[in-house]
Design a protein around this nucleic acid. Sequence first.
DNA 1: TAACTGTATTAGATGTATTAATACGGTTAA
DNA 2: TTAACCGTATTAATACATCTAATACAGTTA
Lengths: 141, 141
Amino acid sequence: MILLDYKDRRPIYEQVVEKLKDLMICGVLDQDMQLPSVRALATDLSINPNTIQRAYAELERRGFIYSVKGRGSFVADTSSVRALKNSELKKDLRRWVEEAKRGGLTEDKAHTWIAEEWTKQQYLAEEDREYDKSRESDKKV
Amino acid sequence: MILLDYKDRRPIYEQVVEKLKDLMICGVLDQDMQLPSVRALATDLSINPNTIQRAYAELERRGFIYSVKGRGSFVADTSSVRALKNSELKKDLRRWVEEAKRGGLTEDKAHTWIAEEWTKQQYLAEEDREYDKSRESDKKV
DNA sequence: TAACTGTATTAGATGTATTAATACGGTTAA
DNA sequence: TTAACCGTATTAATACATCTAATACAGTTA
C-alpha cells in the first residue's frame, strides 16, 4: 500500500499522510472505502501502531477520513483532497519560480523543461506506483 | 547578510549554506571575496559559532569556498555553484512534474501557471532580497 | 604581542519522532 | 454472550539530530 522512505527528512507519520492523500487523489482509495486498520497498516509497514494512529488522527483533523470506534477508518469526501492538492501544486510551483528566477533561469527554459519532463514521464515511473498496482489486484485496499 | 527562518524545518547550518550559495549565484559574493568570519557571522545571526563552522565546513567540502587558517574563508570558483543550481532546479522541476501528473494536472495548466508566476514575480518579492540590497550599500559583504 | 583568523573536541541541553506497553470502550460475528 | 476485531488515549523510555557552551590550539596580521 505504501512504501516508506527512511532517507526522507519528513517523519514517517507525515509520509503516511501524504501517501494516503495521493491514493485518494488518484482514485485507488475512493469515497467511504475502508482504510486498513491502525494495527494492520502498522504491521504491514513494520512500524509502531502509534505512528499510524498519529497519521490517521492528522487525516481526520484535516477532514480527509473519518473514523468510527470499533468499526474502522474510512475515506471521506475526496473532492477536498483534490482541491487542496491543486493549491499545493500551485504553491510549490510558485516557490520554484522564485528560485528559478533567482538562479537566473529564463522563462523559455522553464517552459522547455516542463514540456520535456511532461513527455518523458508518461510511463509510471513513480516508485510506489507499481506497488499500488500490485495491491489493487489483491483487493486489499 | 542572511535571515534565518526558524519555522523552516531545515537545520540552521543548512539554511546558512543555502543562503550563501544564493549570494554567490546572484553575484553579491564574488570569486575570492572574503566571507565574514565564523565568529562574526555567528554573532550577526545570534547563533553559536559552531553552527557557522559546520556550514562553512560543508561549503568547503562541496568546493564552494576555501578556508585558510588564520586568514579567513573565501569564495571559490562560482561557476560550479551556478552549474549545481541549474541541475538542482531541473531536479526540483522534475519532482514537481511527477507530483503534478499524479495530481491530474494538465500540461497546459502547468505552462499557464509558469507564465503567470513569471510575470507576477518581476518585483523582488523574496524576503531577504531586500535585506541583501540594504547590506550591499553597507559594503559589509 | 595582541587580536584576529580557522579548526577541533567534548559535554550538555533540547526538541521531536518513534517505540513500547498498556488500557478502555465500541462493533461484529460466531 | 464471548472472542476478536476496531479506534482511542496515556505514559514512559529511547533514539537521534541540532544546537549551544566552553574550551583549546595553531596560523596570520598589524
